[in-house]
Lab assay of single mutants.
Amino acid sequence: EVPFKVVAQFPYKSDYEDDLNFEKDQEIIVTSVEDAEWYFGEYQDSNGDVIEGIFPKSFVAVQG
Protein backbone atom coordinates (compact mmCIF):
# COMPACT_ATOMS: atom_id res chain seq x y z
CA GLU A 1 0.00 0.00 0.00
CA VAL A 2 1.35 3.41 -0.95
CA PRO A 3 2.33 5.90 0.21
CA PHE A 4 4.89 4.68 2.74
CA LYS A 5 8.20 5.97 4.06
CA VAL A 6 11.66 4.58 3.39
CA VAL A 7 15.11 5.66 4.55
CA ALA A 8 18.17 5.63 2.30
CA GLN A 9 20.79 3.13 3.45
CA PHE A 10 23.28 4.34 0.83
CA PRO A 11 23.62 7.46 -1.32
CA TYR A 12 22.18 7.08 -4.83
CA LYS A 13 23.53 9.10 -7.75
CA SER A 14 22.38 8.68 -11.34
CA ASP A 15 22.76 10.68 -14.53
CA TYR A 16 19.28 9.68 -15.71
CA GLU A 17 16.80 12.55 -15.58
CA ASP A 18 13.97 10.35 -14.26
CA ASP A 19 15.99 8.99 -11.33
CA LEU A 20 15.79 10.32 -7.79
CA ASN A 21 19.21 11.17 -6.36
CA PHE A 22 19.66 11.20 -2.59
CA GLU A 23 22.15 11.00 0.25
CA LYS A 24 22.37 8.32 2.95
CA ASP A 25 19.67 8.69 5.66
CA GLN A 26 17.33 10.69 3.39
CA GLU A 27 13.68 9.97 4.21
CA ILE A 28 11.64 9.38 1.05
CA ILE A 29 7.90 8.96 0.59
CA VAL A 30 7.21 6.13 -1.86
CA THR A 31 4.16 7.02 -3.94
CA SER A 32 4.32 4.13 -6.44
CA VAL A 33 5.93 0.71 -6.77
CA GLU A 34 7.30 0.57 -10.32
CA ASP A 35 8.30 -3.11 -10.37
CA ALA A 36 10.21 -5.70 -8.36
CA GLU A 37 13.37 -3.57 -8.32
CA TRP A 38 12.26 0.09 -8.39
CA TYR A 39 10.20 2.56 -6.38
CA PHE A 40 8.88 5.98 -7.41
CA GLY A 41 9.00 8.53 -4.62
CA GLU A 42 9.63 12.07 -3.45
CA TYR A 43 11.16 14.20 -0.74
CA GLN A 44 11.56 17.88 0.06
CA ASP A 45 15.06 19.27 -0.41
CA SER A 46 16.69 21.90 1.80
CA ASN A 47 15.02 24.66 -0.27
CA GLY A 48 11.59 23.16 0.33
CA ASP A 49 11.29 21.96 -3.27
CA VAL A 50 9.72 18.55 -3.88
CA ILE A 51 12.14 16.29 -5.75
CA GLU A 52 10.72 13.11 -7.29
CA GLY A 53 11.82 10.19 -9.40
CA ILE A 54 12.54 6.47 -9.51
CA PHE A 55 15.18 4.71 -7.46
CA PRO A 56 16.29 1.14 -6.70
CA LYS A 57 14.63 -0.61 -3.77
CA SER A 58 18.00 -2.06 -2.75
CA PHE A 59 19.24 1.38 -1.66
CA VAL A 60 16.51 1.95 0.94
CA ALA A 61 14.86 0.31 3.93
CA VAL A 62 11.15 0.53 4.72
CA GLN A 63 10.42 2.32 8.00
CA GLY A 64 8.14 0.69 10.51
Rank of each mutant, 00 (worst) to 15 (best):
E1H: 13
E1C: 15
E1W: 13
V2L: 11
V2F: 09
V2M: 08
V2P: 11
V2C: 12
V2R: 06
V2K: 06
P3F: 06
P3R: 07
P3D: 02
F4E: 00
F4L: 03
F4T: 00
K5G: 04
K5Q: 06
K5C: 12
V6F: 04
V6I: 03
V6T: 04
V6A: 05
V6M: 02
V6N: 00
V6P: 01
V7F: 08
V7S: 04
A8W: 04
A8L: 04
A8T: 03
Q9D: 03
Q9K: 14
Q9W: 08
Q9C: 15
F10Q: 10
F10R: 14
P11E: 09
P11M: 09
P11K: 09
P11Y: 06
P11C: 12
P11D: 09
Y12F: 09
Y12L: 02
Y12M: 03
Y12E: 00
Y12T: 00
K13Q: 09
K13I: 10
K13F: 12
K13M: 10
K13S: 09
S14P: 01
S14V: 01
S14I: 04
S14M: 03
D15W: 09
D15L: 11
D15M: 12
D15E: 13
Y16I: 12
Y16F: 12
Y16W: 10
Y16N: 15
Y16M: 12
E17I: 13
E17S: 11
D18N: 14
D18S: 14
D18P: 09
D18W: 15
D18R: 15
D18H: 14
D18C: 15
D18A: 14
D19Q: 15
D19C: 15
D19I: 08
D19K: 13
L20E: 02
L20M: 08
L20T: 00
N21H: 11
N21I: 06
F22S: 01
F22P: 01
F22K: 00
F22W: 02
E23N: 08
E23P: 07
K24N: 04
K24C: 08
K24E: 06
K24A: 10
K24G: 04
K24M: 08
K24H: 04
K24I: 08
D25R: 05
D25I: 03
D25T: 05
D25Y: 11
Q26C: 05
Q26Y: 03
Q26G: 02
Q26V: 05
E27W: 08
E27G: 04
I28C: 05
I28K: 01
I29E: 05
I29T: 14
I29M: 12
I29W: 15
V30G: 02
V30T: 01
V30D: 00
V30Y: 03
T31C: 08
T31W: 10
S32L: 08
S32Q: 10
S32Y: 09
S32N: 11
S32R: 15
S32D: 06
S32H: 13
V33D: 07
V33E: 06
E34K: 15
E34S: 11
E34C: 15
D35W: 08
D35K: 08
D35R: 09
D35C: 13
D35H: 08
A36T: 11
A36N: 13
A36R: 09
A36E: 13
E37N: 13
E37D: 13
E37L: 11
E37A: 09
E37Q: 09
W38G: 00
W38A: 03
W38D: 00
W38F: 11
F40I: 06
F40L: 07
F40W: 11
G41R: 03
G41Q: 02
G41L: 05
G41K: 01
E42Y: 15
E42P: 01
E42V: 10
E42M: 15
Y43N: 01
Q44D: 03
Q44A: 11
Q44N: 08
Q44V: 14
D45T: 12
D45R: 08
D45S: 09
D45A: 11
D45F: 05
D45P: 02
D45Y: 04
D45W: 05
S46E: 12
S46D: 11
S46G: 10
S46F: 09
N47V: 06
N47Q: 08
N47H: 09
N47G: 07
G48I: 01
G48L: 05
G48P: 01
G48R: 03
D49I: 13
V50H: 09
V50K: 14
V50W: 13
V50E: 02
V50P: 05
V50A: 05
I51M: 11
I51W: 14
I51F: 13
I51A: 08
I51E: 04
E52G: 09
E52S: 15
E52P: 02
G53M: 03
G53P: 01
G53T: 01
I54L: 15
I54W: 15
I54R: 15
F55L: 01
F55V: 00
P56I: 04
P56W: 06
P56R: 05
P56A: 03
P56C: 07
K57N: 06
S58F: 08
S58G: 07
S58R: 13
F59W: 06
F59R: 07
F59I: 10
V60G: 02
V60W: 04
V60Y: 03
V60P: 00
V60E: 02
A61K: 14
A61P: 02
A61E: 12
V62A: 10
V62C: 11
V62Y: 13
V62P: 11
V62I: 13
V62M: 12
Q63A: 13
Q63V: 15
G64C: 13
G64A: 12
G64L: 10
G64Q: 12
G64D: 12
